[in-house]
Computed example of a mutant assay.
Amino acid sequence: MIAIYVRVSTEEQSKKGYSLRNQIEECKKKANTNQTLEYIDDGYSGEFLERPGLTKLRQDVKEGHISKVICYDPDRLSRKLMNAVCT
């Protein structure tokens, strides 16, 4: 299954074209399918890895439920490069 991970940390982000809906639509285009699982963190900073959507995504990847993860931009996973690489 293909997973889509999206995140916004501020209301301002969501109003300036980086909305959750916009991110999901762009990720579905990249996936080339609507058969995806969506993992969403609304209002969470990318500085920390302790986010409900990301935690569930990581768990599902470890359990083998997810074969591919698509996100709008790598900074949606983490603001810190080492976190993104090790996630």
Rank of each mutant, 00 (worst) to 15 (best):
S67V: 05
Q35F: 10
Q23P: 12
Q59Y: 07
D73N: 09
V61K: 10
I24Y: 04
D73C: 01
K56T: 15
G53S: 04
I70N: 00
E38C: 08
Y5H: 07
A3H: 02
R79V: 01
Q23N: 07
G46M: 00
E38A: 07
R76T: 01
M1H: 12
G43W: 06
L77G: 03
L81P: 12
L20N: 08
G43I: 06
P52I: 08
I4Y: 00
C27D: 00
Q23A: 04
I24D: 02
A84C: 07
L77R: 05
E11R: 14
K28R: 09
L57W: 00
D75H: 15
Y5I: 06
H65R: 11
Y39P: 05
N22H: 15
T10K: 14
Q35W: 10
I4N: 00
Y44N: 02
S14P: 08
E25R: 15
V61Q: 14
C27T: 00
N83A: 02
D42Y: 15
T36C: 13
T33E: 14
S78V: 01
G53L: 08
A3Q: 01
T33I: 09
Y39I: 02
D60G: 04
V8E: 01
C86M: 15
Y18H: 12
Q23E: 03
C71I: 06
G64W: 06
Y72C: 05
G46I: 00
Q35S: 15
Q13Y: 11
M82H: 13
K62E: 10
S78A: 04
E50G: 11
V85Q: 09
V85N: 14
K80R: 06
Y72K: 14
E63L: 12
K68T: 13
S78E: 01
K29E: 09
I4A: 02
K16C: 12
Y5L: 10
L81Y: 13
T87C: 13
A3L: 04
E38S: 11
K56Y: 07
L37G: 06
T36K: 11
P74E: 03
R79H: 04
K68E: 12
D75A: 14
L20I: 09
L81K: 14
K29Q: 10
K80E: 06
I40V: 13
F48W: 05
V85S: 12
Y39N: 02
D60Q: 09
I40R: 08
Q59I: 07
R7K: 01
Q35K: 09
L49D: 03
R21Q: 06
P52G: 10
E12N: 10
T36Y: 12
K15M: 10
N22Y: 09
E26H: 14
P74Q: 08
Q35Y: 10
A3T: 03
N32S: 07
R7I: 00
Y44E: 06
Y72N: 10
A31H: 10
Q35N: 14
D60S: 10
S67F: 05
G53F: 04
Q35P: 12
T87H: 12
C71K: 02
Q59K: 12
L81V: 11
Q23W: 11
K16P: 11
D41H: 03
P74W: 09
